[in-house]
């Protein structure tokens, strides 16, 4: 069982720089070989936002806060909505919120949904939702 009192927990907003080296490393790791993908002012790959998120407040840190051991954890769902492009060189303000914690299958599984908002300046540029699956039996062994 996961501590439900953390539903609504919101991280303090912080700003993460879209460093060119970070985008380049991400491209290298994901097999993106087109050098224009990490050039100055390039639009970052869609799922790169998740990498920025872990610089802000990682899912591992969130799970620690919820007292969930990493061992039984799998990523169940991930969604990105992009309202405006994020560019290499941008400063992105990020904030995350634990939206739901639901037990399924008599407590064998717990689903944790976390929403993330991304802003550049005052402008919302994207939002995402991650659903984390905790296999409680694996977690407790």
């Amino acid at each position: 069982m996961t501590d439900r009192s953390r539903v609504g927990f919101t991280t303090p907003a912080s700003t993460v720089a879209v460093d060119p080296w970070r985008v380049r490393l991400f491209c290298q790791a994901t097999g993106e070989t087109d050098p224009t993908a990490w050039a100055p002012n390039a639009v970052v790959p869609p799922t790169f936002l998740k990498a920025l998120e872990s610089e802000h407040f990682s899912s591992a840190a969130l799970l620690k806060l919820l007292d969930v051991p990493l061992a039984g954890v799998l990523h169940a769902e991930q969604a990105f909505d992009i309202q405006a492009p994020v560019f290499v060189g941008d400063q992105v303000e990020i904030q995350r919120r634990v939206d739901r914690i639901d037990d399924k299958k008599d407590g064998a599984l717990t689903f944790i949904a976390v929403d993330t908002r991304y802003r550049v300046g005052e402008r919302p540029v994207a939002s995402s939702r991650q659903t984390i699956l905790v296999r409680n039996q694996v977690a407790s062994t």
Binding site: P46, T47, L74, Q78, D81, P85
Partner: peptide
């Protein structure tokens, strides 16, 4: 997220990153 990054490449290589406005996956 690596599988999802590959999925994103399916679209960015065809349309370019600026045109990808939403991406959702269930693992």
């Amino acid at each position: 997220m690596l599988t999802m990054a590959y999925a994103a490449r399916l679209f960015t290589q065809e349309f370019g990153a600026p045109r990808v406005r939403a991406l959702q996956t269930r693992f």
